[in-house]
Amino acid sequence: MVKLTKENVKDIAVLARLQLTEEEVERFQKQLSSILKYVEQLDSVDTNGIEATAHATGQANVSRNDLVRQANNQEMILSEVPDREGSSIRVKKVFNHEP
């Protein structure tokens, strides 16, 4: 396995929506590399013809009727919103470019 570079770590952070400090980038570079090296011992397991498991007890798709129910906790839910206007959630502008 190629050791992660600082650039790799920064790229992953962008995908993960984390804004890491330089110190974190350095620390994660070492720690993630050693964890990845550890998990790569799976490479030596022969998995030819083996199906992947997603659910340990083999539960298949579960469906239910698509019914409307009243929850009546809208105000409780909205009271947790950091920035709201009435029953709307206000978000920052998506693009921050000058025209």
Partner: peptide
């Protein structure tokens, strides 16, 4: 993501930086 509940970095200038 700081939008619907929990801590939210109010000082963020735009949505992507609010997330990060």
């Amino acid at each position: 993501d700081g939008v619907r509940y929990g801590y939210s970095a109010a000082e963020a200038a735009d949505l992507p930086s609010l997330y990060t």
